[in-house]
Amino acid sequence: MLTALLLTSATSLSAALLYAAALLGPDQQGPRNSSRQQAEINPTATAHTAGAPSRSGVTTARLVRLTNDSLAGQPFGAEPTVAELLLDGGKVVARRPCRNLHEAGQVDTVLLLRHQGNTFEFYRAAEKDLLRDAAITNFQPSYARRLRTRMEAAHRPAMGVSEQLRIGDTERTNYVSVLYQGGRLSAVHVEPYLD
């Protein structure tokens, strides 16, 4: 009885950790340009690592890595702006001052914005707002539908398969982490490079 309980707990923990890793991305896992990451991402082909069945018979999600400059660089196509999101009911939930590294004495702002269950982080500089991070779980808004369409063109998992997809650009600076559950798009984490 105790063994069955421990196996069930381990399987649940593995699934939770996999989901968190898909949404966190490289900033939370280590430096973007580490030699480990460079070895894992092949700039010309897709690499697959099949998930292994656990002792309880449940297969964990397999990890798929690929390089796609267009998708990693502009996952939404036309990127949503702060003004568009606010006009469509989005709410700024946090503002944080941030010292500009390129202009002495200039203080910019980091905005955390929520829109229909999706979360965006923008770096607001004097000249424009730059997307720093986005976590998409609701695919009803137009920007999320564009993202889903671009994802479908880049990769289609088999029906019923759970996968964690990691898309980077050739320079290994922009990343899109995607989670498919049962062959369906479940969550996307967009991490554009900002200096």
Rank of each mutant, 00 (worst) to 15 (best):
E40R: 14
D129V: 09
N42E: 12
A50P: 07
V64A: 03
N33Q: 09
L131N: 03
R96A: 15
S70L: 05
T109E: 15
T49R: 12
K91A: 07
V93K: 05
G105L: 10
I136E: 00
I136A: 00
D133N: 12
S70V: 06
A47C: 12
A126G: 11
A39R: 09
A94D: 14
L71P: 03
S34T: 12
G105E: 07
L111R: 11
Q28G: 15
R124L: 13
L86S: 02
T60M: 14
T46M: 13
A39V: 06
V58Y: 03
L85E: 00
A125L: 12
T59D: 07
H48Y: 11
S35R: 02
R55S: 15
T60S: 09
L130H: 04
R36G: 11
G89P: 02
R36Q: 13
A78K: 14
H102P: 04
T137P: 05
R146E: 03
K128I: 09
Q74R: 12
T59A: 08
L71Y: 02
G117D: 07
N33S: 11
A126E: 09
V110M: 08
I41V: 09
K91V: 14
A125I: 10
P141A: 05
A134M: 02
N118D: 06
F139D: 01
D133S: 12
G89R: 02
H102C: 06
P26L: 04
A52Q: 13
N100F: 04
A52Y: 10
G77C: 01
D133G: 03
G77W: 06
A52H: 15
V82S: 08
T67I: 04
P141V: 01
D88W: 00
R96W: 14
N138H: 01
P43C: 08
Q106P: 06
L86N: 05
S35D: 04
L147F: 00
L111K: 02
L101A: 15
S56Y: 06
K91W: 10
T46S: 10
D133V: 00
Q29T: 04
L66I: 03
K91N: 09
D88S: 06
L101Q: 12
S142Q: 11
G77Y: 05
R32L: 05
R62G: 15
L66G: 04
L63S: 08
H102A: 13
E121N: 09
A125K: 15
D27P: 04
V110N: 11
E84S: 11
E127N: 08
D27C: 09
E127C: 06
V110R: 12
R62K: 10
H115R: 03
R124K: 15
R62C: 09
A52D: 10
Q140P: 02
E127Y: 04
D69G: 01
A104E: 14
S34H: 12
Q28S: 11
E127R: 14
P75K: 02
A45W: 06
G105Y: 06
R114E: 15
G25D: 09
Q116R: 11
A94F: 15
V110A: 12
E103V: 15
P97R: 09
F120H: 07
A61S: 12
L130D: 05
L111S: 06
A45T: 15
N118I: 00
A135G: 05
G117C: 00
Q106N: 13
L86I: 02
G51V: 12
N33Y: 08
Q74F: 11
E121Q: 14
